[in-house]
Design a protein around this nucleic acid. Structure first.
Lengths: 141, 141
DNA sequence: ATATCTGCAAAGACTTTGCAACCTT
DNA sequence: AAGGTTGCAAAGTCTTTGCAGATAT
C-alpha cells in the first residue's frame, strides 16, 4: 500500500500499542490523537497487515478480532488477560508437535491450529487469589 | 427448560447430528424435518445446553459458533475439517499441562484455554496430498 | 495524469432482545 | 390459571462492500 497519511498514522499507533486491541479500539486511539482516518480504512489496513504477517491477530472470547504488531516472527501463542488485555507471547514447540501428531493420527492434512489462553494477569488478579494462605475459592472454568 | 415440542425436536436433531453445526444449520435441519420451531428458540436452547455442558461449542474460522452434543464429559479438543465439518475429539493432557505451566509462569490466574485444530479430513484431502510419491506442493497456512 | 486510497453510507452475517400470544403443568 | 416458552420483528455487533471524491507518485 502506498504511504498515505492514514497508513503512517496507523503504523505509529501500532508501534505504540503493546497489547492486543480491536480494530475499533485502534480507530478510537487514532481519532483521539487527532488523526483523520475512517474505521473502514483501519479495517482495510489491518486486514492487509495481518495477511502480510506484520500484525498478529487473535479472537477474543466474544468473537471480536484483536490486532497487535508482531513481536517475534516465529510461530507463537498468547496468554491474554480477560480483564485488561495484557498479553504475553509464549512459544510452545510441544503444542505444535502435539497438534501435528493428533491430526496426523486422524489422517488430517493441510493443518493449522489456534491456541489461546485466557486468564487474569497479575495486576488484575484479586489479592486473595494470590495469597498462599487463602486458597482459591473460585472455580476455574 | 420444560419439555416442549421444540425442545424435544432439538434434542432429537442433536442426537442425530454427529458433527459440529451452526445454529442456523440446526434450525434448517429442524425445518427440513417439518418441525415448527423458530431460529430464536434454537439459539436460546443451544445457549442453555452449552452452559449446561450438554452440548459442546466451538468457533470456526469465520467466527460462527458451532454446536454438537457432547460425547465425552472430560475436557477435550477437536480436529475439525475445514471442508465438511467432520471432527474428531482428541484429548491432550499434554496441552492442559502446558497451558497451566506457561500461564503460571506469567503469573496469570483463573485460566481457561481454547485449542482448535483445523485441516482437511481424509475424505476431503485431495489425492495428491496423500500420495507418497507426489509431495505436497501447497503451502499449509 | 492516473491508479490507488479514503470514507461515508449501506449492506451483510450472526446473535440477542422486546413483547404479545401460546402452551405446559 | 400462572408462568415459562415461543417466535416474529427489530435491534445490536462486528465487519465488509459500493462508489464517488481525494490523494500520492
Amino acid at each position: 500500500m502506498r504511504g498515505t497519511q492514514q497508513a503512517e498514522a496507523l503504523s505509529r499507533v501500532l508501534a505504540d500499542l503493546s497489547e492486543f486491541r480491536s480494530a475499533q479500539d485502534i480507530h478510537g486511539e487514532l481519532r483521539r490523537r487527532g488523526e483523520g482516518i475512517g474505521l473502514t480504512t483501519v479495517y482495510r489496513h489491518l486486514q492487509v497487515l495481518s495477511r502480510d504477517g506484520t500484525v498478529d491477530t487473535l479472537r477474543d472470547e466474544t468473537g471480536e478480532t484483536l490486532y497487535r504488531r508482531c513481536r517475534t516472527s516465529t510461530h507463537h501463542h498468547h496468554v491474554t488477560c480477560r480483564s485488561c488485555g495484557y498479553s504475553v507471547e509464549v512459544e510452545g514447540p510441544a503444542i505444535e508437535t502435539w497438534a501435528e501428531h493428533v491430526a496426523a493420527e486422524a489422517r488430517f492434512t493441510d493443518l493449522n491450529h489456534t491456541v489461546e489462553i485466557f486468564g487474569l494477569c497479575p495486576n488484575c488478579t484479586p489479592a486473595q487469589l494470590t495469597s498462599p494462605t487463602t486458597r482459591a475459592q473460585t472455580s476455574p472454568a
